[in-house]
Amino acid sequence: MITMYGIKNCDTIKKARRFLEDHQVEFEFIDFRQQPIEPTLLQSFVDQIGWDKLINKRSTTYRSLSDVQKANITLELTLKNPTLIKRPVLVTDGNIRVGFSEKGYSDLV
Protein backbone atom coordinates (compact mmCIF):
# COMPACT_ATOMS: atom_id res chain seq x y z
CA MET A 1 0.00 0.00 0.00
CA ILE A 2 1.17 3.51 -0.83
CA THR A 3 0.43 6.40 1.51
CA MET A 4 0.90 10.01 0.49
CA TYR A 5 1.14 12.70 3.16
CA GLY A 6 0.74 16.38 2.46
CA ILE A 7 -1.71 19.24 2.17
CA LYS A 8 -4.48 18.94 -0.39
CA ASN A 9 -4.20 22.46 -1.81
CA CYS A 10 -0.44 22.19 -2.43
CA ASP A 11 0.41 22.35 -6.15
CA THR A 12 3.06 19.64 -5.86
CA ILE A 13 0.57 17.36 -4.11
CA LYS A 14 -1.92 17.98 -6.91
CA LYS A 15 0.69 17.00 -9.53
CA ALA A 16 1.73 13.88 -7.61
CA ARG A 17 -1.87 12.78 -7.04
CA ARG A 18 -2.74 13.37 -10.69
CA PHE A 19 0.29 11.34 -11.79
CA LEU A 20 -0.65 8.38 -9.60
CA GLU A 21 -4.32 8.56 -10.56
CA ASP A 22 -3.50 8.83 -14.28
CA HIS A 23 -1.35 5.71 -13.97
CA GLN A 24 -4.01 3.92 -11.91
CA VAL A 25 -1.74 3.50 -8.90
CA GLU A 26 -3.75 2.99 -5.73
CA PHE A 27 -2.77 5.15 -2.80
CA GLU A 28 -4.17 6.67 0.36
CA PHE A 29 -3.87 10.42 0.82
CA ILE A 30 -3.56 11.90 4.31
CA ASP A 31 -3.82 15.66 4.72
CA PHE A 32 -1.58 16.96 7.54
CA ARG A 33 -4.08 19.69 8.33
CA GLN A 34 -7.10 17.41 8.69
CA GLN A 35 -5.29 14.49 10.27
CA PRO A 36 -2.18 15.69 12.14
CA ILE A 37 0.86 13.50 11.80
CA GLU A 38 1.72 11.32 14.78
CA PRO A 39 5.02 12.13 16.52
CA THR A 40 6.24 8.53 16.11
CA LEU A 41 5.55 8.62 12.37
CA LEU A 42 7.33 11.95 11.97
CA GLN A 43 10.28 10.57 13.94
CA SER A 44 10.40 7.55 11.62
CA PHE A 45 10.62 9.94 8.64
CA VAL A 46 13.48 11.81 10.31
CA ASP A 47 15.26 8.57 11.22
CA GLN A 48 15.05 7.31 7.66
CA ILE A 49 15.80 10.45 5.60
CA GLY A 50 16.95 13.15 8.05
CA TRP A 51 15.83 16.71 8.68
CA ASP A 52 17.71 18.12 5.66
CA LYS A 53 15.61 16.15 3.17
CA LEU A 54 12.38 16.40 5.14
CA ILE A 55 12.23 20.15 5.74
CA ASN A 56 11.09 22.47 2.95
CA LYS A 57 13.54 25.33 3.27
CA ARG A 58 11.78 27.29 0.51
CA SER A 59 8.45 27.39 2.37
CA THR A 60 7.02 30.58 3.77
CA THR A 61 6.77 28.86 7.14
CA TYR A 62 10.48 28.01 7.18
CA ARG A 63 11.50 31.50 6.10
CA SER A 64 9.42 32.99 8.92
CA LEU A 65 11.32 31.00 11.58
CA SER A 66 14.01 32.66 13.66
CA ASP A 67 17.62 31.74 12.95
CA VAL A 68 17.67 29.79 16.22
CA GLN A 69 14.62 27.77 15.19
CA LYS A 70 16.08 27.10 11.73
CA ALA A 71 19.25 25.78 13.36
CA ASN A 72 17.27 23.60 15.79
CA ILE A 73 14.38 21.98 13.92
CA THR A 74 12.56 19.72 16.35
CA LEU A 75 9.65 17.29 16.29
CA GLU A 76 7.60 19.70 18.38
CA LEU A 77 8.22 22.63 16.02
CA THR A 78 7.43 20.53 12.96
CA LEU A 79 4.28 19.05 14.51
CA LYS A 80 3.05 22.59 15.25
CA ASN A 81 3.98 23.71 11.71
CA PRO A 82 3.35 20.79 9.34
CA THR A 83 3.91 23.04 6.34
CA LEU A 84 7.61 22.81 7.19
CA ILE A 85 7.52 19.29 5.76
CA LYS A 86 8.47 19.02 2.10
CA ARG A 87 5.60 17.60 0.10
CA PRO A 88 4.57 15.04 -0.76
CA VAL A 89 5.91 12.44 1.61
CA LEU A 90 5.29 9.10 -0.04
CA VAL A 91 5.57 5.90 1.99
CA THR A 92 5.85 2.63 0.07
CA ASP A 93 6.71 -0.61 1.85
CA GLY A 94 8.41 1.33 4.63
CA ASN A 95 10.51 3.40 2.23
CA ILE A 96 10.09 7.15 2.28
CA ARG A 97 10.34 9.57 -0.65
CA VAL A 98 9.97 13.31 -0.40
CA GLY A 99 8.99 15.64 -3.21
CA PHE A 100 7.65 14.77 -6.64
CA SER A 101 9.05 14.15 -10.07
CA GLU A 102 7.61 11.94 -12.79
CA LYS A 103 10.97 10.22 -13.13
CA GLY A 104 11.12 9.59 -9.39
CA TYR A 105 7.64 8.06 -9.41
CA SER A 106 8.12 6.02 -12.59
CA ASP A 107 8.96 2.82 -10.72
CA LEU A 108 5.50 2.90 -9.11
CA VAL A 109 3.65 2.38 -12.40
Rank of each mutant, 00 (worst) to 15 (best):
1 M>E: 12
1 M>S: 14
1 M>R: 11
3 T>K: 15
5 Y>D: 12
5 Y>N: 11
5 Y>T: 10
6 G>M: 11
7 I>W: 12
10 C>F: 12
12 T>P: 09
15 K>L: 12
17 R>L: 02
20 L>H: 09
21 E>V: 15
21 E>Q: 15
22 D>M: 11
23 H>P: 08
25 V>I: 15
26 E>A: 14
26 E>T: 12
27 F>V: 00
28 E>P: 00
29 F>L: 04
29 F>G: 07
30 I>H: 04
30 I>R: 15
30 I>V: 15
31 D>N: 12
32 F>V: 02
33 R>G: 01
33 R>Y: 03
34 Q>K: 15
34 Q>L: 14
35 Q>T: 15
36 P>V: 01
36 P>R: 02
36 P>M: 02
37 I>S: 01
39 P>E: 14
39 P>C: 01
40 T>H: 05
42 L>F: 03
42 L>C: 03
46 V>S: 05
46 V>H: 05
46 V>K: 05
47 D>P: 07
47 D>F: 02
49 I>C: 09
50 G>Y: 08
52 D>I: 08
52 D>P: 04
52 D>N: 14
53 K>Q: 15
53 K>E: 14
53 K>I: 11
54 L>A: 00
55 I>Y: 06
56 N>H: 03
56 N>T: 07
57 K>T: 15
57 K>R: 15
58 R>P: 01
61 T>M: 08
61 T>S: 13
62 Y>G: 08
64 S>K: 13
64 S>N: 14
65 L>N: 03
65 L>E: 01
66 S>V: 06
66 S>P: 10
67 D>F: 00
67 D>R: 04
67 D>T: 09
68 V>R: 10
69 Q>L: 06
70 K>S: 07
71 A>H: 01
71 A>Y: 01
72 N>P: 12
73 I>Q: 01
73 I>W: 03
74 T>G: 10
74 T>L: 08
75 L>C: 00
75 L>K: 05
75 L>Y: 03
76 E>F: 05
77 L>C: 12
79 L>F: 05
79 L>K: 04
79 L>C: 04
81 N>G: 12
83 T>C: 03
83 T>H: 04
84 L>F: 06
86 K>G: 06
86 K>W: 09
88 P>A: 06
90 L>H: 02
90 L>M: 14
92 T>Q: 14
94 G>D: 09
94 G>Q: 09
95 N>S: 13
95 N>P: 00
95 N>Q: 14
98 V>P: 04
98 V>A: 08
98 V>K: 04
98 V>S: 11
99 G>C: 12
100 F>D: 05
101 S>M: 11
101 S>Q: 12
104 G>S: 13
106 S>F: 02
109 V>D: 06
109 V>L: 13
